[in-house]
């Protein structure tokens, strides 16, 4: 069977890719390491969002809510109470997945679907942003700065460190989340998700508890996004409601998995590898030429080209090219 050969190729290419990522910090400097870390964070949120949209079929346009809250939880616990992020991350995960469950519960219980669900998620995210902009405890629009926790050489305890530290830490988190999602979509739950996505009534008739299955997707997706937010807070050292909870944040995170390929496991990673550098190049070009707005124009144009030229995303195309077109990775509908 060609299936096993394909699997072997997938494992081989995946290992090579991972090996390159592991060795890369030896040859690139801090600037590129930080950019690559941003790519990992984007990929991490993309993987989480894709779980909800690509596999469970719920369009969330407000993932900044979970990203921002996760970031604020980790930062506030470290800054206000001196608690280690080792504690902050589990709490952040619980809080954000709880929020995901609440938003999902309200949406699914009241039968808010499609466009309405998408707009509900935007409303919650914007509501949170406005709330944080008027809340003294989180620093209002002035932002929150991680001053008390200095990066030092005990990175593994404080989780604050150099660019290289964040590179490996976020890479490990992303890898873990990717493996977890890979397991989930191949599990019983994953088949339920796709069944509900493709035809909820039929799935229900076969005994799938659509409400509970959807809720799980929302909770897990939100929790992983919260973890990504926590890493962003530690790496950046400062947080503003607009920069982690804003509408633009939600949009940026959604674009990577769509460009990469919705409903594929590797799509969000490929998408992040394409979108983040594009954004960066557009920004550099805009600054070099001193033209305000050029970066936005370039970014928009590139997105436009991608969505018109490769409507299913880039991964299905690349997978074919690399002869990875086994049953599992070529079709957007596959696990």
């Amino acid at each position: 069977m060609s299936g096993s050969t394909t699997t072997r190729r997938q494992v081989a290419l995946g290992s090579i890719f991972l090996l390159i990522l592991l060795l890369l910090p030896l040859v690139v400097d801090g600037y590129y390491q930080t950019m690559l870390t941003t790519i990992f964070i984007t990929a991490l949120v993309g993987i989480a969002w894709n779980l909800m949209m690509g596999f469970a079929g719920q369009l969330s346009l407000g993932h900044a809510l979970y990203f921002g809250i996760g970031a604020y939880v980790v930062a506030l616990m470290a800054e206000r109470y001196g608690l280690s992020p080792w504690l902050g991350f589990p709490v952040g995960f619980l809080v954000t997945s709880g929020l995901g469950l609440v938003v999902g519960f309200l949406g699914f219980r009241f039968g808010v679907k499609g466009v309405y669900f998408a707009l509900l998620t935007i409303a919650f995210a914007e509501f949170a942003r406005l709330l944080f902009e008027h809340w003294d405890y989180v620093g209002k629009t002035g932002g929150l700065f991680l001053g008390s926790v200095k990066p030092d050489n005990r990175s593994l305890i404080t989780l604050r460190g150099s660019a290289t530290f964040y590179y490996y830490a976020v890479l490990a988190t992303t890898l873990f989340a990717w493996l977890w999602c890979g397991y989930l979509v191949r599990s019983r739950l994953g088949y339920f998700w796709r069944a509900v996505r493709d035809d909820e009534d039929a799935a229900r008739a076969l005994g799938v508890r659509a409400f509970r299955v959807n809720l799980l997707a929302a909770g897990i997706s939100a929790g992983i996004t919260g973890i990504a937010g926590g890493w962003f807070a530690l790496m950046n050292g400062n947080l503003f409601p607009e920069s982690v909870l804003g509408m633009r944040v939600s949009i940026d995170f959604i674009i990577a998995p769509i460009v990469g390929g919705l409903g594929t496991l590797c799509g969000p990673i490929l998408g992040a590898l394409i979108v983040v550098p594009l954004n960066e190049i557009a920004k550099e070009a805009g600054q070099a030429l001193g033209l305000n707005g050029l970066n936005i124009l370039l970014y928009g144009t590139l997105l436009f080209i991608v969505i018109v030229a490769a409507p299913d995303g880039c991964w299905p195309w690349l997978a074919n090219r690399l002869a990875l077109a086994g049953r599992s990775s070529s079709k957007p509908d596959g696990p």
Partner: peptide, 10 residues
């Protein structure tokens, strides 16, 4: 969604 977002950015 992506089409209109790209239009908005442009």
């Amino acid at each position: 969604f992506v089409l209109y977002i790209s239009l908005a950015l442009i």
